[in-house]
């Protein structure tokens, strides 16, 4: 008798409680993490020290990403920048521009300033790794040049970036 009462009570409690769990917030995907060593240039490939060669060599690590409104270089960014610095040391004649970008979720002019901040942060880290400062310049594109066209956190996290571009 007690057991039946218990079962009935528990069942009614469960029926009454209609809790809905919040879905976990989406986390932005981690940036590319493939560690690829700098491959020796092949005859038919792009010229060494060129942007195309740099991009292939970096395989995604020519770009570092930022959180909303932030411009700090975190551990992942540092790893990518170390590879960039290594490449630039390997080709001492190459000059590079660091582009700073923002997501669309901000005002246009402030984003131009924020983009410059991000580019500057990346450049400073490269300089601290030994790249000569006069080989690096910065440019800000604000929110004008997105690479991901969605209007969601996934796209925005991909657009908040600093890209190093070797000048041919």
């Amino acid at each position: 008798m007690q057991k039946i009462a218990l079962v009935v009570t528990v069942a009614s409690v469960l029926a009454l409680s209609a809790c809905k769990k919040e879905p976990p917030a989406e986390l932005p995907p981690a940036p590319q993490n493939t560690a690829s060593p700098v491959s020796p240039p092949s005859q038919a490939g792009p010229a060494p020290g060129s942007q195309e060669h740099f991009r292939q060599a970096m395989a995604g690590r020519d770009t570092i990403f930022f959180d909303t409104d932030m411009f700090n270089v975190d551990a992942e960014d540092q790893a990518a920048l170390r590879e960039q610095a290594a490449y630039l040391q390997q080709y001492p004649n190459a000059r590079a521009t660091v582009e700073g970008h923002c997501d669309e979720r901000g005002t246009r002019e402030y984003n131009l300033a924020l983009g410059e901040r991000r580019a500057n942060a990346a450049k400073n880290y490269l300089v601290s790794l030994g790249v000569a400062a006069d080989r690096l310049s910065t440019v800000s594109y604000g929110k004008e040049r997105p690479i991901a066209v969605g209007s969601n956190e996934q796209a925005w996290s991909r657009n908040r970036r600093a890209v190093t571009v070797v000048m041919n």
């Binding site: 410059e116 901040r117 500057n120």
Partner: peptide
């Protein structure tokens, strides 16, 4: 006008 120099505008 606004000018950004070394991260400071």
């Amino acid at each position: 006008y606004s000018m950004a120099v070394a991260g400071n505008t």
